[in-house]
Computed example of a mutant assay.
Amino acid sequence: MAALRRTLHVASLAAGTHRALAGSLADSCLADRCLWDKLHAQPRQGSVRTFDWFFGYEEVQGLLLPLLQEARSACPPRVLDVGCGTSNLCTGLYTKCPHPVDVLGVDFSPVALAHMNSLLEGGQGQTPLSPGHLASRLHFMQADAQNLEPVAPSGSFQLVLDKGTWDAVARGGLPGAYKLLSECLRVLSPQGTLIQFSDEDPDVRLPCLEQGSRGWAVTVQELGPFRGITYFAYMVRGCN
Rank of each mutant, 00 (worst) to 15 (best):
M1F: 01
R6H: 11
R6G: 03
T7A: 13
V10N: 06
A15E: 09
A22I: 03
L25E: 04
A26D: 15
W36C: 03
K38A: 14
A41C: 11
A41N: 14
P43C: 01
T50F: 04
T50P: 09
T50W: 05
F54P: 08
G56I: 09
Y57E: 10
Y57A: 12
E59V: 12
V60E: 03
G62L: 12
L65Q: 11
P66G: 12
L67C: 07
E70V: 13
P76G: 07
V79T: 05
D81H: 08
V82L: 13
V82W: 05
T86K: 03
C90Q: 04
Y94E: 01
C97K: 00
V101S: 06
F108G: 01
F108K: 02
F108P: 05
S118E: 07
P131T: 06
G132T: 02
L138P: 10
F140C: 03
D144E: 11
E149R: 15
P150A: 13
S156Y: 01
L159Q: 04
V160E: 01
V160H: 00
D162H: 03
D162T: 08
G164H: 01
V169P: 07
G173A: 10
G173V: 12
K179G: 14
L181E: 00
L188I: 03
L188Q: 06
S189Y: 01
S189N: 09
P190D: 06
D199P: 10
D203N: 13
R205H: 07
L206W: 04
L209Q: 06
G212R: 02
W216M: 06
L223W: 11
F232P: 13
F232H: 15
R237C: 11
